[in-house]
């Protein structure tokens, strides 16, 4: 992939996210860890969001910013008191800036066992083409 594509996609924690966080600053939000890789057809993003079911997941694209967000829902008995906690929030959120060659209308998302997989294809004109070499 071209260097340019890498720089544009290289997902930084964006201004958009900071603004969103400021708006809801009273709530602690966790950043899910992600793997991101790219091949000729597009970019795949895999995010760990344990405890989030399909119906409590939101994937949103606004102004080229992709935001994944989910809420943890686990069965808990009444009268439960916390003895120990590594996870101290029930909300995950993270945003990435997308680049122009990605087809935002064709994003495919699957959620399985708390792992979100997003495939973001490149527009057809940006997919690598095999050039026929004619030899006379």
């Amino acid at each position: 992939m071209s260097q340019q594509a890498q720089q544009q996609m290289s997902p930084r924690e964006e201004r958009g996210m900071q603004q969103q966080q400021a708006a809801r600053s009273r709530e602690w939000v966790m950043q899910p860890p992600v793997d991101i890789h790219e091949n000729g057809t597009g970019i795949t993003l895999v995010a760990d969001m344990p405890g989030v079911s399909k119906d409590r997941l939101e994937v949103e694209v606004e102004n080229d910013v992709l935001t994944i967000e989910g809420e943890v829902s686990i069965p808990m008995p009444e009268e439960m008191k916390a003895l120990y906690a590594d996870l101290r929030s029930k909300r995950y959120r993270r945003s990435f800036t997308l680049s122009r060659e990605l087809d935002l209308d064709q994003i495919r998302a699957t959620m399985k066992d708390g792992v979100l997989t997003l495939h973001i294809p490149k527009r057809a004109e940006f997919q690598p083409r095999r050039i026929q070499v004619n030899v006379n």
Partner: peptide
């Protein structure tokens, strides 16, 4: 593939 981030355990 080209890998940009590998944060997952």
């Amino acid at each position: 593939v080209q890998s940009y981030r590998r944060e997952r355990f």
